[in-house]
């Protein structure tokens, strides 16, 4: 991409260049040294974290044998996928309703929508816990829903905060989208759904995908809210690891962390590759 770009005269020269390089190196070290240390010690033979006694895969072995850890990972994955899908749909709808329509109570809705971003996690967590303890039986009336299971509670809680983040990201995109384009579509015989599907959605797609990525991250990351609402048997991995920590640090945590890290990195790389593949035929074409 940067091929053929002329050297800028603003490019640092001499000692300032080396200073900046050193600075960059330090920043990267700060980011990645902990990861390197973690990965390194996950192959440590010793029981005691931080003292190297020799190479071993025993913690990975433990990980493979430990049903609880694996189960908690599956809980996280399930909650993440379900809550992301739901919050992307609802968050996009919320963004559309605010940006494209005028209705009674809109200002209030707009303000309330931001709340989960602003209020502390703990507050949100306590609110949800109390809410579920009061209303769980009501939800159970819906066929197929059983809030005592915990999984549904986790999904609902994650949706509750993810909607806000998704709608903020999508809104930023919608604001910059010329609304006359939607009028043009309507003028060209498209109904509302066709207009959304063919004109609006393709153009806000980067925002929707960005929101989804944010939702995935926030859902996997969340410890506070999840630990307040999760039930026995449905503990997400973040909460599980946190619990392990309290029982005393075991190098198993290192192995678990490395696996999760590897999986996340694989996801990021996959999404980058996918983006390049889907974008390449769409590049500038000449006749």
């Amino acid at each position: 991409m940067a091929k053929g770009v002329a050297r800028s005269t603003a490019e640092p020269m001499g000692w300032s260049k080396w200073l900046l390089r050193g600075h960059s190196a330090l920043v990267y070290a700060f980011f990645y040294a902990p990861i390197a240390v973690l990965t390194f010690y996950s192959f440590n033979e010793s029981q005691i974290v931080g003292r190297w006694t020799g190479f071993s895969m025993r913690w990975y072995g433990d990980f493979l044998e430990n049903d609880n850890v694996q189960q908690s990972i599956w809980v996280s994955v399930k909650v993440c996928i379900a809550s992301t899908l739901i919050s992307v749909v609802l968050g996009t709808l919320a963004a559309l309703s605010i940006e494209r329509f005028r209705w009674w109570g809109q200002k209030a809705f707009d303000a309330v929508l931001y709340l989960p971003i602003i209020i502390p996690d703990v507050t949100m967590a306590v609110m949800l816990m109390v809410f579920f303890s009061e209303t769980a039986e009501w939800f159970n009336v819906i066929p197929g829903v059983d809030l005592s299971e915990g999984l549904e509670k986790l999904v609902l809680s994650h949706v509750a905060f993810n909607i806000s983040f998704v709608s903020v990201v999508v809104r930023a995109r919608l604001t910059n989208l010329d609304a006359t384009m939607e009028e043009a579509a309507a003028d060209l015989y498209a109904n509302r759904w066709q207009t959304f599907r063919r004109v609006t959605l393709p153009q806000i797609m980067p925002g929707v995908l960005g929101g989804a990525l944010l939702a995935v991250t926030l859902s996997l990351d969340d410890v506070v809210v999840s630990s307040f609402v999760s039930a026995v048997g449905a503990t997400p991995v973040s909460v599980y690891v946190f619990g392990m920590l309290r029982k005393g640090v075991s190098p198993l945590i290192n192995a678990v962390s490395v696996v999760i890290l590897a999986a996340s990195m694989a996801l990021v790389i996959a999404s980058l590759v996918l983006e390049r593949v889907t974008n390449s035929p769409k590049g500038p074409e000449e006749e």
């Binding site: 010329d178 006359t180 384009m181 009028e183 043009a184 579509a185 309507a186 003028d187 060209l188 015989y189 498209a190 109904n191 063919r198 004109v199 393709p202 153009q203």
Partner: peptide, 20 residues
């Protein structure tokens, strides 16, 4: 009647072409 059900078409001031 909504615009999509009217036998007219518009050339908009800003053109409003679909960029994608």
């Amino acid at each position: 009647r909504p615009p999509n059900k009217r036998p007219v078409n518009t050339v908009f001031q800003s053109y409003a072409l679909f960029p994608h």
